[in-house]
Simulated scan of single mutants.
Amino acid sequence: MKGKGHRVRRPLLKWVVALCLLAAVLVSVDRQTLWQELSQMPIDLLLPALAITVLQVLLSSGRWWYTARRLGVSLTYRVALREYYIASFLNQVLPGGVLGDVNRAWRHGRASGQPLYAMHGVAIERLSGQLVLGLAVLISVSWLAQVGVVPPESPWWMWGLVGLVVVVFLLGRYLIRSSRGARHYLRGLWRDIVRTLVAWPAFPIQMGSSVLVLASYLAVFLILAYGAGHLTSWNAMILTAALCCLLLLSMVLPVTVSGWGVREGAAAVLWPMAGLPPEQGVALSVGYGALVFLSTLPGLVFLTVRLKQAGSGARDPVRKNQDQRAYHCPD
């Protein structure tokens, strides 16, 4: 019972953290100005912004489908698209922002009969996106330091963080040398990473698709900023894009639900550093969060259909559509 209560309290705690952070942001900004900023975002721009979010899912699903093919795991693009929508919706409503991807990996592993490769496929597909985001953040911080938005030493802190990750990786590699099982698993994981992310032609395909996905994220931010009348010059557009890269990085922290609270708190800090009102950044962050949530609602439809089929005893649509014969693509 104690373990069950702990499992229930942890998700609730993240909801509480999100609400507390949002409340703190609302207290720290002018709420009337914030409402004016939100009301300036025209409704007619929602359609192109939502269209871009559809492109996001199409690209991300294709990236997962390609990764699975490189691993030799059967996955049709139609199934990948449906499961990605479901995962995106679950990531929006469940604490941590990764439980939808965990469910996606588990269902794919059950359907394909290759759970380890299915798990690696989802993890590497997500890693591809995070690598591109990390590079974009480094470029953004370097540029923001040059124009005086952030302290000049900030890029060195970012590169120091990269160095710390490398040191931790090397230390972990040294510590697990005594474990044959861990050594065998990591070698297999590294081979999968090389096959799906580093080897030719995987690298340009993975990086190219991830760059397009990141560009679509930033395009949604920029559409909202344009609708609110904030993109008055090219410099304003570049500044907004750089700041939004940092907002996307803040959402990686799995301490709330879908980045709510953390994203708005980061906006309330970053925009004044750029000489802009915090309400502008918070409004942009709230608009982005609401729009992304709306874009994942097809996942709710797919999830409802799946639950109805499970309740009626119908065959799992993933199992029905998956070719159970695994095939391998040449490296």
Rank of each mutant, 00 (worst) to 15 (best):
V122F: 00
V165D: 05
L161I: 15
L81A: 12
R180V: 08
R107F: 06
Q56W: 06
W157D: 06
R107M: 03
Y185K: 12
R180S: 14
A111S: 08
G172T: 12
L75F: 07
Q92F: 03
G148T: 07
A145L: 15
Y77W: 12
Y117D: 10
L171I: 15
S112Q: 03
Y66N: 07
I139F: 14
R183H: 10
P155F: 05
Y117W: 15
R173A: 14
A136T: 08
V122E: 09
G96P: 02
L94E: 06
A87H: 10
Q92E: 07
S179N: 07
W65F: 06
G148R: 15
N91M: 07
S140D: 03
L186R: 06
G72E: 01
L135A: 14
G172K: 04
L138S: 15
L133E: 07
P151I: 10
S142E: 08
R177N: 14
L71A: 01
N91W: 09
I86F: 00
L164W: 15
V57S: 04
G100H: 10
I139K: 09
G181Y: 13
T76H: 11
D101G: 00
V162H: 07
L164I: 10
G109W: 01
A182E: 13
L164N: 14
R63F: 03
L58F: 01
E153D: 14
G129N: 12
Q114E: 04
Y84R: 03
L75T: 03
G163L: 03
L133M: 12
G96K: 00
G181E: 15
Y117V: 12
W156R: 13
V141S: 04
G134S: 09
G121H: 00
A118T: 03
G113T: 06
A80S: 09
L138E: 01
R126Q: 02
A80K: 01
D101W: 10
L161H: 13
S74F: 00
P155D: 08
R187C: 10
G100Q: 07
Y84K: 01
R69G: 01
L164E: 13
V102N: 05
H120A: 14
V102Q: 01
A136D: 06
L71N: 02
L81V: 09
W106G: 04
R110G: 05
R78I: 00
Y117H: 13
V137R: 04
Y85G: 06
P151Y: 03
V168T: 11
R187A: 11
Y84C: 04
G100D: 01
G188F: 07
L127M: 14
G160Y: 00
V162D: 04
Y185D: 10
V93Q: 00
W156P: 02
L161Q: 15
G129F: 05
P152H: 11
W64I: 01
T76K: 13
V147C: 11
P95Y: 05
V141T: 04
R78P: 02
M158W: 14
S128C: 09
A182M: 09
R180Q: 13
M119H: 10
S112I: 01
G172W: 06
R70W: 02
L133I: 11
Q114L: 02
L94K: 09
G188R: 11
S179Q: 10
Q114F: 03
A87M: 12
V162M: 12
R104F: 07
G109T: 05
P95L: 13
E153G: 10
W156L: 11
Y174A: 12
W106T: 09
S128M: 04
G109Y: 09
Y174P: 04
